[in-house]
Write a protein that binds this DNA or RNA. Structure first.
Lengths: 194, 194
DNA sequence: CGTCCATCTATACGGATGTATAAATCCGGG
DNA sequence: CCCGGATTTATACATCCGTATAGATGGACG
């Protein structure tokens, strides 16, 4: 394996247990057994390397979620949403540093257009994907993923995912539990129909 | 005004238009017309100063939101939620750097227990406050803010707020619009009742 | 007026970091 | 075998940052 692959691997490992912002070029060298200058040679800069690695990890994470949401082909949209939220919360504990990496990257993206573009693209792809799942669960061939109803539901589900993760990051103890979310949602809608 | 107040003011100003992470001690000195050593003298450290300022700004922001949510005493919970989401999205454009400061602070909080404690406390207070509003709109004297139904709804509303803000930060163009959220929510629940 | 404490000033220190440079090494092809 | 481009190595550089230190200043008070 060349230094390129070694560095990419090390970056992924570090992202998953040290976060993004506090990884130094020398950390990457130590974890990969390569050389300081190889970072610049293969990736242009430290951030170039980190961002390349981050994209991969991010994508895998959303892949895993999509798989869960699709597990039961007969689930209703709400059931899928609930399942997704529950899964997010369930796996959060293992992925704390990774989640932190996303948050740090999000902050960093404000000053790094390339990174921002990359993250936005992943986000958009995720939204589209969720919209597709929603469309499928309509069971109506005329309803496609780009139907406003589907994108709306997708945006909503993902907003809850993001918000959940954020609240959990700050205070796991008091963060909402999935069944409460579902109850809250039902209650919210029920009360407005009186 | 002593250096203490000058620094606090400068910190708030910088937080609102430069974010958190990239403020240097020398920025604070320049913006306040004080002295490098005054930071240490009055606040112990640069982060001490920044965190003190951040707490204030954060609190004002949630105050403003609560006021909006309470504007119409006859609104249903869902109407309040919708109004809150719409308001968040509406004001986001003015508060971009501030929102970024929160995200950066959230990342920083992982390595700064005092900051984390402080942010978690504000979050908790906010959640309680929203729960109180929800309880009020039940119009039932037996339902209090600590009723699970209220805290559940509150957690849910805030999760959506957070998620919305996050998506908007990354990509304002394609972030969900409040009316779509509402439509998505209704659709989600309606479809699950078939 | 003189003392003393709080506050303010100017500067130095120590350290860490990302990147560039130049030399060494490797390896495939002629 | 040997050449040359690709890669790897070792190190130097330049910069920036947070904080500590030591002394100046100012004003309240006896």
């Amino acid at each position: 394996m060349g230094h390129r692959e070694l560095l990419l691997d090390a970056a992924r490992r570090l992202l998953e247990d040290k976060g993004y912002a506090h990884i130094t070029a020398r950390d990457l060298v130590a974890a990969s057994g390569t050389n300081l200058a190889s970072i610049g040679y293969h990736f242009g800069s430290k951030n170039g390397l980190l961002n390349a690695a981050l994209g991969d990890v991010f994508e895998e994470w959303t892949d895993a979620l999509a798989e869960v949401a699709l597990a039961d082909p007969h689930a209703s949209p709400l059931q899928r949403a609930h399942l997704t939220w529950a899964t997010v919360l369930l796996h959060l504990a293992d992925k704390r540093a990774l989640l932190l990496s996303f948050v740090e990257a999000l902050a960093q993206a404000e000053r790094d257009p390339a990174l921002r573009e990359q993250l936005a693209e992943v986000q958009d792809r995720t939204r589209t994907r969720v919209a597709e799942i929603v469309a499928t669960s309509y069971g109506d061939a005329d309803v496609h993923a780009d139907d406003p109803r589907c994108t709306a539901v997708a945006g909503f589900i993902l907003a809850v995912c993001d918000g959940l993760a954020l609240q959990w990051l700050l205070d796991p103890q008091r963060s909402p539990r999935p069944e409460h979310l579902l109850a809250g949602l039902n209650d919210l809608v029920a009360r407005s129909q009186n």
